[in-house]
Structure formats: structure tokens, C-alpha cells
Nucleic acid binder design. Sequence first.
DNA 1: TATTGTTATACTCTATAACTATA
DNA 2: TATAGTTATAGAGTATAACAATA
Lengths: 145, 145
Amino acid sequence: MGSTDRPDLAAMLAPLTRSLIAMELPILDDHGLTMWAYSVLTALSAGPARGQGVLAQEIGADKTRIIATLDDLQARGLIERTPDPADRRARLLELTAAGRRLHGAAQAGIRAREEELLERLPAADRRGFLNALRILRASGPETGE
Amino acid sequence: MGSTDRPDLAAMLAPLTRSLIAMELPILDDHGLTMWAYSVLTALSAGPARGQGVLAQEIGADKTRIIATLDDLQARGLIERTPDPADRRARLLELTAAGRRLHGAAQAGIRAREEELLERLPAADRRGFLNALRILRASGPETGE
DNA sequence: TATTGTTATACTCTATAACTATA
DNA sequence: TATAGTTATAGAGTATAACAATA
């Protein structure tokens, strides 16, 4: 009855994700960023967001969770948060030049560490790993419900 | 300066792990198991454990976190928890026949779901993905400290 | 009335510290 | 005194519900 003879996927992915995050936290801290703050900067680096709710959903957070983060990022001049002229309830969010710079620096540090990790993999596995992540991410969580 | 042109690893792994867990929880629930309970059964399915602390560390938990879980599993006759004759402070932990059966059933359900997910991947990527997970898991978190 | 952002509250999960029993 | 297990407490993180402004 030894079906597939490997640990469960989640049993492998969860610790790997945890150690990846543990490895990235010191780097982010060097730049004065929390993980949520970095997630916000990353999302905004792809372009402005119309509405905090949209942004929150985009990074898998609750609307209420990122407010303190946005306050801080704005106070530090890393993002701009302006009322949407078309609907003054909503806020337009975008990176400032300083925000883009800081995100770039933090991301470079993270990428360097990630490369060290990926170098442990044979080229074929590395390619397959990254391809699989892209595919599984794209197909999304049409898993739960 | 578009270095690697892909999302950060953690940014891909974290949501994937989350959705994997979300997909497995209902299956575990059908068998009356929490994720920690399933982790315990999985660890013990490889063989008995000498000491709860050892078991906890093995599954990445705190000693205090799994006590209630062990109480429940024992009360349901899924594990045996006997004092170690050699050191009566410690407890020897092992699956009962019922525990082994339940773990097998739950794992089968999870594996079936996982296969559906993996079927979305081209064979080469699937192989590379699983290889990479094994390698990265083995090399462990010599990342943090 | 519905929605965006905000604030305040409650809840869950996890870690810390104190206790017992063995050694 | 040190350690395994247990229990009780406190803390962090998260979600839920109520509120103000705008539509």
C-alpha cells in the first residue's frame, strides 16, 4: 500500500516556506521593512493600486491588516496615498521614487539569498521547480471550495 | 536592472502552501483530525518516538503545543503513550492499529488531491518540482542562523 | 442603502514561565 | 541540579464587528 513514497506536499512546502521567510526577515529588517510592508511595496512596484481593499486582497491580507503598514510607509515617504478624485472614499496608492529605490534594494538582497539556495539544485530540477511554482500559482487555489 | 524577472520565491511558495493547507483541512476534518494531529500520526507512522519533546521537534512544534493533541489521540485509541521503563520521566509514543489505519485513510485522501494538483504540471516540471522539494528539505534551514 | 477606509474589540494561536516527578 | 512532561499565564497576530465619510 506504499502509494507514492514521498512526504506529503504540504509537509515539505510548509517547512521550506518557513525557513525561506526566516531567511528573508533579517534582510528586510536591515531595510526597516516588515514582511507586510515588503509585500505592499512589491505589489505597488508593478503599478499603482486603486483602493486599499484591492491592494490587500492582492497580497492575501485583510483590509484592516495593512492600514498600520500603509500609515508607516506613507509617513516615511515610501508611498503616496491620495483620495481618488473619481470616488473620494477610495485611496490611490503608488510608490514614491524613494519607495521604488528601497524596494529594489531589499529585493536585490533577497534574490541574492534565493540564488544561493537554488544553486543547490541541478539545472533541470531548478528549471522544473520554478516552472511548477509559476504554473501552480497561476492555476491558483481552485482547490478549497 | 530586471534581474531575474520572477516573483520572489516566498511570494510564490507562501500562497501555494496556504492553498494546499486549505485544501487538506476539509479532508482531515472528515477524519476528525487537526493538522497537528495528522502531523503526529505521520511522524509516528515512520516508527515510535521516545519522548514527546523529540516528537514535537520532529514536526516543528513546541513541546507544549502537542500535549492536548496527544491527549486526544490517546483518548481515541489512536496512539499509545507509555512511560519509558529506562527513564520514567519520558513517554514512549507509538501508533495503535487503529491509528495506523486512520492515518492511512487520511493520507490517501490527501494524496489523491495532491495528484490532481500535480497533474497540471508537465512531466518534466513535476519531476523537477518534487526533486527540488526533496533536496531543499534535506539541505534544511541552514539559512536562518 | 451600499461601500471605502478606519477604529475598537474579541478571538485564536503561540511562546514564556512556573510546577511536578523523576533522575 | 537538571530534565520530561504538564499546566497556567501572557503575548502576538488575526479576524469580527461597529463607526464615519462618501456614493
